[in-house]
Design a protein around this nucleic acid. Structure first.
Lengths: 226, 226
DNA sequence: CATGAAACTTACACTACGTGCAAGTTTGCT
DNA sequence: AGCAAACTTGCACGTAGTGTAAGTTTCATG
């Protein structure tokens, strides 16, 4: 008779259970097919087929084939936004952002799959666009959550800041992908990504000291070790 | 009979002339149809029909229907990137960005159509994604152009900075659209957009002073010492 | 346990997108 | 004039995504 869940974590109802399983099956099938046949051969029908569901059901779960692949990124960014919300409210946003990201980047196993999806998007314009949208929605979410913490006059400054933070995050991923064209799955590469994410936010917080102090960046390129 | 152009700016060849005309016809038809029939009724066939070309030709000129509408934004961002390149090389990037944007925002008539396209994307996810891609490509272009000006060890800092700048630009557009839900075509609104763009970059340059100095952000919350 | 409602899956049909291809047509050069 | 390259067009094809109306499963009743 209790319509409420008996124990929230144990059995969230058979229905929810099945849905989660189907979702996972689709996502798994997509990644498997991608691995085996390459990006070009990835079609909605094949994925649905491999997942054991109808094509229509796939579209009931995901709005597009690319969205299936993109799921890890959206999950990650959702957690990132949530992490920012839960920080102590009396912290200046510029500090809170660094803290939140530090906590998030710590979960390296989540980061690994996200990084994987990120490099995947390099050869797939549709997926790349979808990821840009995901980053943007993350920014909107963060802005929404934090706008209550700042006075109204600072609303625009907050908006700019949040976009800059998210931009910094993307820059970190991008530079990271460029630096590790081949070994992006290695532990060292992962550690580098974590480092870059932190450095990016610190540079934003500190106002880009290296760039600001540039006086004579001569085209003659004063050679330095990389 | 001379194979060289008679006057380089006047007649760039009949072929180029026709192509430009077709391009303009397609873009015009798209905007007209959008105005008249609404976003939902906008289909490739209708646009091509209204432009007096075949559907196939439309796709020879633009990769998608949304790209037709997006043309003004890409043009604007291309000019923005180009403007940054042409600035004196001995200027610190943090200053150069502000200068370049100031020059660009001055051409208010270009800005107007861009702003128009921006609000258009609010109700059209495909177009919105395409615009995000355009901003991103702009960032890549700027990064490419300026990376020669900074020492190699500042390359990553530059990447972060460029992304932050572009993010700031987007934040300005977004906040602007929220502030002018109805009058976004008025001269006052346009002036406000110019102002926001400048303010956004200044805040980035100055390190978000208002956010950093926040001590008691909660309007209804008694401040506690950290 | 029976049973009915709600949630979920599936097949089918339909519109539209974007592309390859093989014609035709226009433009430019000599 | 005439040829080659560029451009347009129609056609066909595979695929994406969506509406709809039927089945099928889950779940809370009596």
């Amino acid at each position: 008779m209790p319509s409420a869940r008996t124990s929230t974590s144990a059995t969230p109802g058979r229905r929810e259970q099945n849905k989660a399983a189907t979702r996972a099956a689709i996502a798994g099938a997509a990644r498997r097919l991608l691995q085996d046949e390459g990006a070009d051969a990835l079609t909605a029908e094949k994925v649905a087929d491999a997942a054991g569901v109808s094509r229509r059901t796939l579209f009931n779960y995901f709005p597009s084939v690319e969205a299936v692949l993109n799921a890890p990124l959206t999950a990650f960014l959702d957690r990132a936004a949530a992490g920012l919300e839960e920080l102590p409210a009396d912290l200046p946003p510029t500090i809170a952002a660094v803290d939140a990201l530090a906590a998030l980047a710590g979960e390296s196993e989540g980061l690994a799959t996200v990084a994987d999806v990120f490099v995947l998007a390099q050869g797939n314009p549709q997926l790349a666009r979808l990821q840009l949208e995901a980053w943007d929605q993350c920014a909107a979410q963060i802005h929404e959550a934090m706008s209550a913490r700042v006075p109204a006059e600072a609303g625009f400054e907050l908006a700019v800041y949040v976009h800059a933070v998210v931009g910094a995050g993307r820059a970190a991923f991008q530079s990271w992908a460029e630096r590790h064209p081949d070994d992006h799955r290695s532990a060292a590469a992962l550690a580098d990504l974590q480092r870059l994410l932190m450095v990016a936010l610190e540079q934003l917080r500190d106002g880009f000291p290296a760039l600001r102090n540039l006086t004579t960046p001569h085209p003659g390129t004063p050679d330095r070790e990389s």
